[in-house]
Computed example of a mutant assay.
Amino acid sequence: MSDRLLPKLERLLASWTARLETADPGRDLAEGEWSGARLLIPGDSEWPTQLDDLGDSRPYALWLHGQANLRFSCLRSVAIVGSRAATPYGTHVAAEFGAGLSQRGWSVVSGGAYGIDGAAHRGALACGTPTVAVLACGTDVTYPSAHHDLFAIVRSQGVLVSECPMGTRPTRPRFLVRNRLIAALSRGTLVVEAAVRSGALNTAGHATSLNRLLAAVPGPVTSETSAGCHRLIRQGAAICVTTSEEVIDLVGALGDDLAPEARGPVFPRDRLEPETRRVLEAVPVRTGVGPATIAVAAGVDLQTVLSCLGGLAAAGYVERVPRGWRLRPDRPPAL
């Protein structure tokens, strides 16, 4: 064994020995039962088997507090993550995605933090589908404290999840460690807003390493809180999405959850026959011209022009003036 490695192992052993001296599984179980939480271990019927993809990093057990079944809630789920210091644009988009996914029967998995996490949970709760909040503290600890009411609603409509026993306070390392659970529980991860240095990008990295699908929402190019999303898209690590339908298209069943193609508005003139539309486009706006001039501009014969002009006049597109034909000045812009 390397002389450099031995002191490090000794320090780690001393650290774990100190922790073991204070560990009291019986007390943890009693406190969990008293608070209303339940302990879940691999092999239980509620255990999400996708956590096995974590390999040696799979949690040994999970504390749950809530009415929803964790396994069923995660069968069709998307993780939504992003910046705590979210902009109004980011929180609006996160809530829209959370609500859109929930309306279509997809659960939202997130971390219960300020900003994007909280907005995504609220959007999902508004539409009734269970939401899963993965915490970096005990399920009896409200962090952030301002989310006390939010977590109460999550317990009634969804479930709080943590590796930590009751009373455990959050630390920065615990946030990074729990991110692997957010990525592993869901079918795919959506990054709504993230700076270049962001915990959300840590979750995105876990999603990629687990071969989960990764998506990102573009933001203003001037916004630093979207710079991480833009980098993921530019590097090809994430798919650019703008609607919840596109997210479901990405993570859903092949052929069953396709997003509709985006289309512009359909105007009345779009329903005209091709020749009639060509004649209409050849009619001038201000001064009138004769049918022969229109025929040359439209590339059709004179008889076709005369036939089309009659129908266009009846439909209100064109009018006859002393010098020929022109577009009606009072026509709606969409015509």
Score class of each variant (00 low, 15 high):
Leu9Trp: 08
Cys127Ala: 04
Asn179Trp: 04
Asp149Trp: 12
Pro170Cys: 14
Arg58Gln: 15
Val134Leu: 08
Cys240Ala: 12
Ala315His: 07
Glu33Tyr: 05
Phe267Asn: 13
Gly112Asn: 02
Leu54Asn: 06
Pro329Ser: 09
Val109Trp: 01
Gly98Trp: 04
Pro88Phe: 11
Gly112Cys: 03
Ile80Lys: 02
Arg71Asp: 06
Ala133Leu: 08
Phe97Met: 15
Glu273Ser: 12
Ile41Pro: 00
Gly158Ile: 04
Leu12Arg: 13
Ala215Gln: 02
Leu62Arg: 01
Phe97Leu: 15
Gln50Arg: 15
Gly199Thr: 01
Thr139Pro: 01
Leu62Phe: 08
Pro173His: 09
Ser156Arg: 15
Glu319Tyr: 02
Val154Glu: 00
Ala184Tyr: 01
Gly43Ser: 08
Pro265Trp: 10
Glu21Lys: 15
Val289Cys: 10
Ser83Ala: 15
Ala334Trp: 14
Val93Lys: 09
Ile239Ser: 02
Leu12Thr: 06
Gly219His: 01
Pro42Glu: 07
Phe97Ser: 04
Ala124Phe: 02
Leu327Met: 14
Pro291Asn: 06
Ala313Cys: 11
Gly310Tyr: 07
Ala204Pro: 00
Glu21Ser: 07
Gly264Ser: 13
Val78Tyr: 04
Thr225Ile: 09
Ala126Ser: 15
His147Glu: 05
Ala237Gln: 11
Ser110Trp: 01
Val217Phe: 08
Glu163Ala: 10
Gln235Met: 14
Trp47Met: 08
Cys240Ser: 11
Ser57Ala: 14
Arg234Pro: 02
Thr129Phe: 10
Ala282Pro: 03
Ile153Asn: 13
Gln103Cys: 14
Ala292Phe: 14
Val161Cys: 09
Asp140Gly: 00
Pro25Arg: 09
Leu302Trp: 13
Val321Leu: 09
Ala194Glu: 00
Asp56Gly: 05
Gly105Thr: 04
His121Pro: 03
Arg58Leu: 11
Thr276Tyr: 03
Leu40Gln: 02
Thr142Lys: 07
Ala124Asp: 01
Ala146Phe: 11
Asp257Cys: 11
Arg286His: 07
Gly32Ala: 15
Gly98Cys: 11
Gly36Met: 13
Leu302His: 13
Glu33Trp: 07
Asn211Val: 07
Leu51Pro: 02
Gly36Phe: 11
Val81Glu: 00
Pro284Asp: 00
Asp330Asn: 12
Glu10Trp: 12
Asp117Glu: 00
Gln235Ala: 13
Phe72Val: 14
Ala37Ile: 05
Ser156Lys: 15
Gly264Gln: 09
Gly123Lys: 03
Glu281Trp: 03
Gly311Thr: 09
Ala282Phe: 08
Arg326Phe: 10
Asp52Ile: 02
Ser102Asn: 03
Leu327Val: 11
Arg328Asn: 12
Thr142Trp: 10
Arg169Gln: 10
Thr222Tyr: 07
Leu214Ser: 01
Ala200Arg: 01
Glu33Thr: 10
